[in-house]
Amino acid sequence: MNAVTTRGALLAALACVLVGGSFTANSVLGAYPYAGGQFLRYGLAWLLLLPLAGKGSIARLRSLAPRLWGRLVLLAAVGMVGFNLAVLAAERTAEPAVPGVFVGCAPVVVAVLVPLLDGRRPQRVVLYGASAVALGAFTVQGWGRTDGAGIAFSACALVGEVGFAVLAVPVLRPLGPRLLSAVVCGIAALESAAAGVLLDGSAWLRRPDTVETAALLWQAVVVTVIGFVCWYMGMQRIGAERATLFSGLIPVAAACTAPLVGTGSYGPAQAVGSALVGAGVALGSGALGTAARPRLPRALRGPRRPAPSAPGRGGGAPDAVVDSPSR
């Protein structure tokens, strides 16, 4: 892998490890109103991300087409608020491993969906790697008790995980990772507030206690601000297909940190699953030298510019596509 690809892989990996290590924070928020917690998390993240958005942010937002604004609203609703709500609803009748297994299939879905939407065929090496990641995630988590509702909401969580990557592709280049993260957090905060008022009435928001405050701060600052920016910076460099491979690190990170807080153990199954996830990521991302240079979707590629004319020829050479992500 070249320097840009390596940096993108490391950023995507860091983002997913932060999410996986946040399960402890989630466990202490079980009694806090869901929508209120999401509102505080995304609202604080929005405030922290605004100064990082960079110069010209207002101009970039004004130039955004209405259909892209629709994508941003859908991204926040499906990939953030809806995803978290689906996981919470699934865990009411299913053990946490069940939605985890469904979400672990996201690399396979993205590896097929993104190329098809871009008018090209899925790459076999990426598909093989994604399949190994999904199998590894299943091995780490196992299966658990569930019912029809648990399976249905787990499938909705899978849709949310896929949407978080796929819906961002057309808006990532015009906005950049930091402004994109800020905008979707602001939208998600408004959507969370609306959902809270509709579902919980006046009880949708209360003052968190000391432990809940610490957990919400961790989610807002570490998982959302740092995690989202790293995720989209990584996706900008290696594409949604390869970036989503690293989501297999989420259950691995959760399994590795669980013994530290006494909420689980790390045994042979977790070790085998972790190895499968690592092998799948290495294979699909090209770290083993088996995959071609990542081909970014059209929405993430740089503008076309003409190559210099060849000496001794009257015409110019064909246009060269320059992958130069904005910063």
Score class of each variant (00 low, 15 high):
Thr224Glu: 03
Val103Ser: 08
Val98Ala: 01
Pro107His: 12
Pro107Ser: 14
Ala106Leu: 15
Asp209Ile: 09
Ala111Gly: 13
Gly100Gln: 04
Gly136Glu: 10
Pro174Ala: 12
Val114Cys: 12
Ala215Gly: 08
Gly160Phe: 01
Val223Asp: 05
Gly227Lys: 02
Ile151Pro: 01
Gly160Tyr: 01
Ala111Glu: 11
Ala137Pro: 10
Leu190Ala: 12
Arg145Lys: 08
Leu190Trp: 04
Asp118Cys: 15
Thr213Ala: 10
Pro170Phe: 00
Cys105Arg: 06
Arg120Ala: 14
Leu117His: 13
Leu113Trp: 13
Ala188Met: 08
Ile151Leu: 12
Val126Ile: 15
Ala149Ser: 08
Gly104Asn: 07
Ala194Leu: 13
Pro208Ser: 09
Ser202Ile: 14
Thr139Cys: 07
Cys185Ser: 13
Phe138Lys: 02
Phe138Arg: 03
Phe153Tyr: 09
Pro208Asn: 08
Trp231Ser: 10
Asp147Ser: 05
Leu117Val: 15
Val110Leu: 10
Phe102Leu: 13
Val140Tyr: 05
Pro99Arg: 06
Tyr232Ala: 02
Pro208Ala: 09
Tyr128Val: 15
Arg206Ile: 10
Cys230Asp: 07
Leu205Ala: 09
Trp218Ala: 08
Trp143Met: 03
Ser192Met: 11
Phe164Lys: 02
Gly163Ser: 04
Phe153Met: 06
Gly227Met: 02
Pro177Lys: 04
Glu161Phe: 01
Val108Arg: 11
Gly142Ile: 04
Phe138Ala: 14
Ala195Asn: 06
Arg178Val: 06
Val229Tyr: 05
Leu199Gln: 12
Leu190Asp: 03
Tyr128Asp: 13
Gln141Asn: 02
Phe102Ala: 13
Ala188Asn: 08
Val159Ser: 00
Val197Thr: 12
Leu167Tyr: 00
Ala214Tyr: 06
Leu199Tyr: 08
Ala111Trp: 09
Val171Asp: 03
Phe228Thr: 04
Arg145Gly: 00
Val184Gly: 02
Leu117Ala: 15
Ala168Leu: 09
Ala132Trp: 13
Gly227Glu: 01
Val184Lys: 11
Cys230Asn: 08
Ser192Ile: 11
Gly104Met: 07
Ser131Gly: 13
Cys156Leu: 11
Cys105Gly: 13
Arg124Trp: 15
Ala182Trp: 07
Leu113Cys: 14
Ser154Met: 00
Ala220Ile: 07
Val126Phe: 14
Gly227Thr: 04
Ala130Thr: 08
Thr224Tyr: 04
Ala130Gly: 07
Leu167Gly: 03
Ser202Glu: 14
Phe164Pro: 00
Asp118Glu: 14
Cys230Gln: 07
Ala168Asn: 06
Ile226Trp: 03
Thr213Asn: 10
Leu127Arg: 12
Asp200Asn: 12
Leu216Tyr: 03
Ala193Ser: 13
Gly136Phe: 09
Pro115Ala: 11
Pro99Trp: 04
Arg120Gly: 14
Leu158Pro: 01
Ala203His: 09
Ile151Phe: 02
Gln219Pro: 05
Tyr232Thr: 02
Leu172Lys: 01
Pro122Asp: 15
Ser192Arg: 08
Gly201Thr: 13
Gly148Tyr: 00
Val162Tyr: 00
Ala195Asp: 06
Leu190Gly: 05
Leu175Glu: 05
Leu116Arg: 13
Val114Ala: 14
Ser202Met: 12
Val159Cys: 05
Val108Ile: 15
Val110Phe: 08
Ala215Tyr: 09
Ala111Met: 11
Ile226Phe: 04
Gly186Asp: 12
Ser131Asp: 09
Val171His: 00
